[in-house]
Each structure stands twice: as C-alpha cells, then as structure tokens.
C-alpha cells in the first residue's frame, strides 16, 4: 500500500534517515521498532509530508506522494499522530476532535452565511461522533476541558482519538502508548485491532514496548541508524543477530524493560 523507496533525510550533514526502503502491506498492523534516534519519527515525518526527503520516493497505492503537503495527504486518508502530543490548546477536548475532518461545508465562507442548516446538521453529527470517541477512550469527563490542561497521557489518547474521527486508510501511530498506563494501553491495543478489523485501517505503529508490539504487529520492521535492518515476525526479528546487537541487546538489560 505504501512503498518507501531509498529515502534519505539529512539535517545539516547528519543522515537521520539513510536510504530506508520498506513496504507497508494493506490491512496489516506493521510494527516499527529501533533504538532511540534510529530515524523512525523522521521517517514518519517524511511519509506524512511534514518533512521533504532529501532524496528518495514515497508512493501510496502506486501514486507518488513524495513531498505532498500534510493536509493533502490527510484527504487521501493518510493520518498520523505525534510522538510528542500536539493539541489545539485554546479549545476543549471535544472541539479538538471536532476540528479533525477538514473540508466541511462550514469551512466555505459562502456556507457560513447561507448554508446554516447544513452546517448545523454536520456539527451535530460531528459532536455525536466526538463524544463517542471520547467515551471509547474513557475520557468523556474531559470533553469540556481545555486541551492545554489535560495530562500528557490524556493528550496521547486525544491523539489517537483524532484518527478515529474520519475514515482513514492508513494511520501512523508514533509511540501512542508512551506515558499511558498499562490498562489503558491494553484498551488502546484493542482499539487498534478493532479499527483494523472492522474499519479496515492499515496501521504502522512505533513502539518500544515489546509486549505491545508482539500482541498487535505482524510484520515488524527494525530500524537503526537510519537504515532498515530487518523485517519479519517479531520472533524472527528477535532472533536476528543485527537487531540484537543494535537494539535488543544480549543481556537482561532489555526485552521487558525497553519502553517500560
């Protein structure tokens, strides 16, 4: 579905992504792992149009999407969340969610004045949807709260909620579980599986929590130093010599500890 072809992204002279190539299969939940600074987030940014690659190509279902602006990609059904949660600080959590589906009829100045009824209907539907998502994420009580005032973990949930407001095709989740407690993490995991099964979302998930990855993801891709090291099932990845050396380590230092 998404094909990343030899993408390079440099900052100054530093090659954050150094010739990464990979393919995301439609309908799969792909895990992306790798040590801190491996270039995972940077690769997400390149795919989602936040950063233009220095070289290389990204295609989505055969269409070249390299360097398209994020809002265009959004309308093509490509969504992402931020590793460091972003929010519209001056708005309530509900309004934050309601901002998501861009291009509503209320956005045209003409309709603002002359299409009041249609906008009102749309708003009502959106509001119901937002409330449903908040409920699902167990943060209904925060609906009226200003998004700048909620906790870090709650902001993460809001990030995830955003992707549930529209019918996405592919969603990139950047450490959506970091800073979220274990029970909620399981809920999030369930939500991802459900969205994948019922709404046909394709997911790419960056996580440091191996249990989480193991439960959801197949295949798993491991990056290090801007390159793709290996791809396969988690078991295969865990057995891969290079991966062990670069990321998982050989001793007790890791495995369960990583990301905890």
């Amino acid at each position: 579905m998404i094909k990343v072809d030899n993408v390079v992204k440099t900052f100054g002279g530093f090659r954050a992504v150094d010739g990464a190539s990979l393919e995301i299969r439609q309908g799969a939940i792909t895990g992306l792992i790798g040590p801190n600074g491996a270039g995972k987030t940077t690769l997400f940014n390149v795919i989602a149009g936040v950063l233009k690659p220095t070289s290389g190509k990204v295609t989505m279902m055969g269409e070249d999407i390299t360097g398209l602006p994020p809002h265009d990609l959004f309308h093509k059904g490509l969504l992402r969340t931020f590793q460091i949660a972003h929010e519209f600080g001056s708005m309530s959590c509900r309004e934050n969610l309601m901002m998501v589906p861009g291009n509503q009829s209320g956005e045209s100045l003409w309709n603002t004045w002359f299409g009041r009824k249609r906008i009102a209907d749309e708003e009502r539907a959106l509001r119901a949807k937002a409330d449903e998502v908040l409920e699902f994420l167990t943060i209904s009580h925060l609906a009226e709260q200003k998004a700048s005032q909620i906790s870090g973990g709650q902001k993460k949930l809001l990030e995830l909620g955003r992707t549930m407001m529209v019918d996405a095709k592919i969603v990139f989740l950047d450490e959506v579980g970091a800073g979220v407690n274990r029970t909620l993490l399981n809920t999030i995991g369930d939500a991802i599986v459900q969205l994948n099964k019922e709404r046909g979302y394709t997911f790419v998930v960056i996580e440091h929590d191996m249990d989480f990855i193991g439960r959801l993801c197949d295949p798993v891709i491991c990056m290090a130093e801007g390159k793709v090291l290996a791809q396969g099932t988690l078991a295969e990845i865990k057995a891969n010599e290079q991966v062990i050396e670069a990321y998982l380590g050989t001793g007790l230092k890791n495995k369960d500890m990583v990301g905890a």
Partner: peptide, 30 residues
Amino acid sequence: FLNKTRTGKSMRAYSDNEDLALLSGINPEK
C-alpha cells in the same frame, strides 16, 4: 466568526498549532 464558525475555528486551530492543523486536513492557504 472566530468562535462559532468552522472557518473561524480553523483559524484558531492554525494559530494554536500549525503542524497539527495541517495534519488535521486544514488547508493553510485558505
């Protein structure tokens, strides 16, 4: 306009957080 209409809210969203606004499908040029 800023508080009640969709366009106004898009403007506030853009002012709050440009990156997120773009990733929420808000067209910056508009």
